[in-house]
Design a protein around this nucleic acid. Sequence first.
DNA 1: TGACAGAGATCGCTGATTACA
DNA 2: TTGTAATCAGCGATCTCTGTC
Lengths: 328, 328
Amino acid sequence: MRKISLKKIAELAGVSVATVSYALNDSNQVSEVTRAKIKKIAAEEHYVPNLSARNLRTSSSNLVCAITNTYQGNFNGDVLQEIQNIFGRAGYQLLAVSGQIPSLVRTNMIDGIIMLNYRGNQTELQNLVDSINKPVIFMTNEIKSDNAASIVIDNDLGIKYLVETIHQSIHQKVCFITGDSNSYNSQRRLNAAKKYYTKLFKKNDFEKHVYSGNYDPTLSFELGKKFIRLNRYNSFICFNDDMALGIYHAASQLNKIVGKDISVVGFDNSFESGVISPGLTTIDVDKKAWGQEVVNQYFKLKESGSKHTVTTLKPKLILRESVNIKTD
Amino acid sequence: MRKISLKKIAELAGVSVATVSYALNDSNQVSEVTRAKIKKIAAEEHYVPNLSARNLRTSSSNLVCAITNTYQGNFNGDVLQEIQNIFGRAGYQLLAVSGQIPSLVRTNMIDGIIMLNYRGNQTELQNLVDSINKPVIFMTNEIKSDNAASIVIDNDLGIKYLVETIHQSIHQKVCFITGDSNSYNSQRRLNAAKKYYTKLFKKNDFEKHVYSGNYDPTLSFELGKKFIRLNRYNSFICFNDDMALGIYHAASQLNKIVGKDISVVGFDNSFESGVISPGLTTIDVDKKAWGQEVVNQYFKLKESGSKHTVTTLKPKLILRESVNIKTD
DNA sequence: TGACAGAGATCGCTGATTACA
DNA sequence: TTGTAATCAGCGATCTCTGTC
């Protein structure tokens, strides 16, 4: 099957290339009759416009690139899917990449960028937004620029809920298991954890009870096994649900019952958190609203190039049975 | 920051555009001295080649598009990440899209396609591969064409392991929970399930014990709750791990113990299957090997356009504690 | 006769401008 | 004027063909 171009259609229709272009793009520069004729031929020949040529000419595509650290894990997948759906409805095509920032996004083949959990240092990202002349939306970061906006979770509030919940439990030997240190969300959660731990538990030894779990369930499993065996901690605040599952696993190996012998809380409200027994107390962000806000800000930025804004999403506490609440 | 093109660099270096192109592409058409000078200027000016222009000229990019039904769930994320890594090492950029087949892939902006769990009917896919002149690799389908290849799981063997395992358990009232009916893997697993159920259990009532779970844990949860309460079934063969988790949840709500009162097996060996208690007996495919084979076949197809091949990957049984094995 | 550099055609499409009723 | 169609100049990179020292 050979490639079919505007030129070929023009020959078949007996008109000029420009006329074909106008007809297919619904310009009123062309009569109804010719338009219909040309469209018919284009359909018959299965014409597909060459995006490279069009983009070269107009320097705009309908392509938005989502850059993420990995496709794995519940969180990124859920959020990507949400954004994809909303952009799709707006006539845009979302392309997801994971790993490095592809040089692709620096060319005008890509109209804009969504940054989700991309692990890079701040100067790298600052350089990117400064040197690139297109909208960039950060979902897990705050970078200041005229063509950037941030829509982030209110991690402080989420952690406040969790620390309060554990504070109301019978398990007061509390351990914090963080995500990886490059993660914006993990950093924010850490700050908030310190604040609310110090405030509620009235202690100044926060740093002694913090362990890096790298968002990885096998790591938290090892930590949990050690600490539960030694009876060093009896409550675990995990910065995501996957790591909380690791603690569940450790508890079960040591014949301890979550929600009775120990308390566990997570973050993200992954589907497993509701399906596991006992249900995991966790923090939920409305991913649909988040995705919608990302797309809104994207268009605002695209049209007006407004000043940098940071939008914050309020999370909700999902109370389940993984915490043994004091009943005095 | 203005756009910097070959022409600008040519002006700055005092040479022609052609020379700059040669220099940057390491052609030996240009002297060491000029090459170095030009490269220095290009670096200083942060030159990024315009991919649209290059692609328009050469009609080849280094872009491979992975089309999937959704970013959600363990399976797709894990596999996408694996392929991304391997293509990345080979100097290719993987772009993932979910949902519809984007018209993008029909233009020469995209060099090739990987199909992972895309839900579309066979004629749609056949038309695509026939009309598109680039390699297409199917990971969950078999489409015959000169520019297509399939690398699929041996679902028959996987299901054989599972049915055998349940057959050795004390729970002989067996229920099958399938994925969605458009899924190739689910269809194959269904065929195999019938075959081995009929053979081992020596019964001809297979269809009466099959329920559609749509790969969805909440659906399987509902099914499980109903069947366990009625004591209609005591063993559950789920076509993925997520649905097996739904059964776990149902069991726990009804105070039944998985691996003792009922037996459950899944498919995929997701990380949760190992972390949950009791561990879930499931089927593992080596995703790294799968990804590697996909990339190998991709290059073979790209170079020689060989005849259609179907490669099958042997899965492994991961035996954990979710099945109550007969011990006579 | 090399070794190197430049001119110019080309890919497919768009859109301003021009031309013709 | 007004409606309709054609002309033409690029967008940025590649690469063959020439030309020069």
